[in-house]
């Protein structure tokens, strides 16, 4: 089987969701009213805007993730060929990891790993 079969899976998934929602549209009851279209906030109308600029301290984590995830991508090829490369690969990955862990420790010490 070739990789184009992925398209089949894609289409099948779209079909599954699309069909079910369309089907539900036809058989499900529908009664529109303004109260129902309110966003749910425990029965109280929402105060102020929802899409506000607000502080979720996870931005730092996203950056850290970016750094580490790119590193992970580099490790994958190494992992595959590690058995053939042997000792040289091991020493190189130790150096690589040393730098990586150093980065993590730096972030740790700088309190970047604490959700403020």
């Amino acid at each position: 089987m070739d990789h184009q079969a992925l398209i089949v899976f894609f289409i099948a998934a779209v079909f599954l969701v699309g069909f079910a929602i369309t089907f539900a549209h036809f058989i499900a009851p529908s009664s529109k009213n303004a109260q129902k279209a309110e966003a749910y906030e425990c029965g109280i109308p929402t105060t102020g805007l929802t899409w506000l600029q607000f502080n979720v301290g996870y931005y730092l984590f996203a950056i850290l993730f970016l750094i580490f995830d790119v590193e992970t991508v580099f490790i994958f090829p190494w992992a595959v060929v590690f058995k053939q490369v042997g000792m040289v690969g091991f020493i190189e990955i130790i150096i690589f990891f040393f730098i990586l862990i150093l980065g993590l420790l730096y972030a740790w010490k700088k309190h970047a790993l604490i959700w403020e």
Binding site: E41, T47, L52
Partner: peptide, 21 residues
């Protein structure tokens, strides 16, 4: 929603109702 100035957005409080439901 209507477009707000950045300044206004930053100053608004993020209020959430917990309850009654």
């Amino acid at each position: 929603a209507e477009i707000l100035e950045v300044k206004d957005i930053a100053q608004q409080e993020y209020l959430i109702n917990m309850g009654p439901q």
